[in-house]
């Protein structure tokens, strides 16, 4: 309930911002499947440009079960400043099963609750995609197969909304990382390789963010 009120309040303030500010920060949603490294990336960006983190990172899927945002992140590129709001969203998936959390030393009750919250989070993230984002950073674990139903569907939705989108092939530090496979999966979009965890290739990441969302 509080989350909804916050959402509504934010939406209202956003409308007001639109009315009075000539150039408000673009709201960039960080989307992707669970465990792609979305929060790690969001924290990397937020720490680099504001000094604060956005939320806890974890190897357990669905650590992020509510969208979190960092407003007015100013990124300096080529003497210009680009301001964006970063929205870190829960990993989008078509199935949530508490049993997958049992492997992570979790009690059944906690796993079921986490599963429920994750499902709510996906619903919220999908709702936001429709109404609340101006651009999308789509994060993929480049060591896994990018040809999934979720990826295809989400990219399709993003394309249908004609939102600017960047594909981030994350986890290039992993041995199995295959950036080309990601690029081949989404040939209509620009793919940027990076390791958000190690901070590799972040210069290009910020160049592209400024270019696409500035």
């Amino acid at each position: 309930m509080m989350g909804l009120l916050t959402n509504l309040r934010d939406s209202i303030s956003r409308v007001t911002d639109r009315l009075f500010a000539s150039e408000e920060p673009k709201r960039i949603g960080i989307y992707g499947p669970p465990n792609a490294g979305k929060t790690t990336l969001a924290n990397r960006i937020a720490r680099d440009w504001t000094g604060d983190a956005i939320g806890p990172e974890s190897h357990v899927p669905h650590e992020t079960r509510r969208a979190r945002r960092k407003e007015d992140v100013s990124i300096e590129r080529n003497g210009k400043s680009v301001s964006i709001d970063i929205v870190d969203t829960p990993g989008v998936t078509t199935k949530v099963d508490y049993k997958e959390f049992l492997d992570h030393d979790m009690e059944k009750d906690d796993a079921i609750r986490r599963s429920r919250e994750a499902t709510e989070g996906v619903a919220e993230a999908m709702h936001w995609l429709r109404e609340d984002v101006d651009g999308v950073i789509y994060v993929l674990d480049s060591s896994t197969d990018p040809f999934t139903q979720v990826n295809t569907m989400l990219i399709g939705i993003i394309e249908s909304r004609e939102l600017p989108v960047l594909i981030f092939a994350n986890k290039t530090d992993l041995e199995d990382s295959d950036v080309q496979r990601v690029a081949d999966a989404f040939p209509d979009h620009e793919t940027v390789p990076l390791s958000a965890l190690e901070g590799n290739n972040m210069d290009e990441v910020y160049d592209k963010i400024a270019e696409y969302f500035g």
Binding site: M1, G3, L4, N7, V92, T93, T94, K95, V96, D97, Y98, K99, K108, A111, I112, S115, R116, T119, E120, V122, A123, E124, M126, H127, L129, R130, V150, M153, L154, I157
Partner: peptide
């Protein structure tokens, strides 16, 4: 959202994207 059993859910992403209302909370 199809509730297979408590803690097990199947999500129809297109439906979630298309729907007007917010889902506030799932109950056990």
């Amino acid at each position: 959202i199809r509730i297979v059993s408590p803690g097990q859910y199947e999500l129809n992403l297109m439906e979630l994207y298309d729907r007007d209302e917010y889902i506030i909370s799932l109950r056990e």
